[in-house]
C-alpha cells in the first residue's frame, strides 16, 4: 500500500506530533507514505476566491495524478477541499473549464480527475478495516475513557463524501477508538465545531466555541479527548491553556491525535509519538496505560 501523504500547511509547522505519530503508525501498518511537493489545499482561500481555491486543490491533485498515487490527508479541511474539488470538477463541466483555464495559464497544468482522496481515519475505517486493526493491537487500552471529537470537515458535507459516515451521527471514529480497547464516551456537545475556521476573523467567538466543549467535558470523567484535525487540536489543546487562564478554569483535559492513541495501542513507545508537543499534560493518561513510571 503506497500513498501520497498530504500534510497541508498547519501540520508540518504546528502539529509535528500528529505528523510524527502518523508516520510511526503507518510503518507498523505496512503503509508506505510518499512526500510530494504539495501546496495549500485551497480551503483557507475559498472565501477570497472560490475558483482559485479549486485551482489550488486541482494543482495538488494533478501532482498526485502524475505520480499515480492516491492521497491520504491528515487535516479534515484539506480532505474536504480536495474531495470537493475532485467531485465538483467531475460533475460540472463549466467549473472544470474555468479551473483548468487558470491551471493552464498559470502553471501549464491540467486536471481531469481520477485521484482518490481519503482522510487517514476514513482510510482506516473503510480500507484497512476495524477488524484488521483489532488483530494487531498489542497493548489494549482497557479502562481508558475517550471523548471523541469528529470535527466538521471529516464527514461533512455528506454530498461531497457520498455519505461514507452519517453527517450528524457518525460512528467511524468511535469504532476506531474502540478498536484500541479504549472506551468511547458519548457527551452532549460531541458534534460541536471547534471554531478554528474563524479564529483569525473573530478570536472571541472561536474561543467561546472551544470553551463550550471543554466545559462539557470537564463535567464528565474522561481520560482524554481524541481529535483528527490540526485546527481542532489547536483550539482544544493549545488554546485550552489560554482559556483556562482567561476564564479562571482548570481543565487539564489531554487532547490526543488519533494516531497517538492508536500508536500506544500498537505498542509504539510514547517518546516516538510526539507527546512532549501536546500542550496539555498527558502524564496521568500515560501512567494509567502503564507506559510511564
Amino acid at each position: 500500500m503506497k500513498y501520497a501523504l498530504f500534510l497541508g500547511c498547519t501540520i508540518p509547522s504546528r502539529a509535528l506530533n500528529y505528523e510524527l505519530s502518523i508516520r510511526k503508525v503507518a510503518e507498523v501498518l505496512g503503509i508506505e507514505l510518499v512526500d510530494l511537493d504539495f501546496g495549500c489545499c485551497g480551503f483557507p482561500l475559498a472565501a477570497v476566491d472560490e475558483i482559485k481555491a479549486f485551482a489550488l486543490a486541482a494543482g495538488n491533485l494533478s501532482l498526485a495524478k502524475k505520480h499515480n498515487l492516491p492521497i491520504l490527508a491528515l487535516c479534515s479541511a484539506c480532505a474536504e477541499a480536495l474531495t470537493k474539488t475532485e467531485t465538483s470538477l467531475a460533475e460540472r463541466e463549466d467549473l472544470s473549464k474555468r479551473v483548468n483555464r487558470l491551471l493552464k495559464t498559470r502553471l501549464g497544468l491540467e486536471y481531469r480527475g481520477g485521484v482518490s482522496i481519503k482522510h487517514f481515519a476514513r482510510f482506516l475505517y473503510e480500507d484497512f478495516g476495524i477488524d484488521n486493526l483489532k488483530k494487531i493491537i498489542k497493548r489494549p487500552l482497557k479502562g481508558v475513557k475517550i471523548a471523541n471529537h469528529y470535527g466538521c470537515h471529516y464527514m461533512r458535507p455528506s454530498e461531497v463524501y457520498q455519505n461514507f459516515d452519517d453527517p450528524l451521527f457518525p460512528v467511524s471514529l468511535d469504532l476506531l477508538v474502540e478498536a484500541t480497547g479504549a472506551e468511547n464516551t458519548n457527551y452532549k456537545t460531541k458534534m460541536e465545531c471547534c471554531g478554528g475556521a474563524i479564529a483569525g476573523m473573530n478570536e472571541n467567538i472561536a474561543m467561546k466555541l472551544a470553551e463550550t466543549k471543554l466545559d462539557d467535558l470537564s463535567k464528565i470523567e474522561v481520560d482524554a479527548m481524541v481529535v483528527i484535525c490540526p485546527f481542532c487540536s489547536i483550539m482544544y489543546d493549545k488554546q485550552q491553556v489560554l482559556i483556562s487562564e482567561a476564564e479562571g478554569k482548570n481543565f487539564e483535559i489531554p487532547v490526543l491525535y488519533y494516531p497517538q492513541l492508536l500508536g500506544l495501542a500498537l505498542g509504539i513507545e510514547p517518546d516516538e509519538l510526539g507527546f512532549d508537543l501536546n500542550a496539555t499534560s498527558v502524564e496521568k493518561l500515560l501512567k494509567k496505560i502503564g507506559v510511564e513510571e
Binding site: 475559498a46 472565501a47 472560490e50 466538521c152 470537515h153 461533512r156 458535507p157 455528506s158 453527517p167 450528524l168 458534534m191 465545531c193 471554531g195 475556521a197 474563524i198 476573523m201 473573530n202 467567538i205 472561536a206 466555541l209
Partner: peptide, 26 residues
C-alpha cells in the same frame, strides 16, 4: 458575512438544499 465557521450543520439540515456556507462564500 465573515463569521460562518463552515461547520456544515445547516447544510446537512437545510430542507431546500440551499447550502448556506457555500452561499456565504459566494
Amino acid at each position: 458575512i465573515w463569521l460562518c465557521s463552515v461547520c456544515f450543520l445547516c447544510q446537512e439540515r437545510c430542507p431546500q438544499e440551499v447550502r448556506p456556507p457555500e452561499v456565504m462564500n459566494a
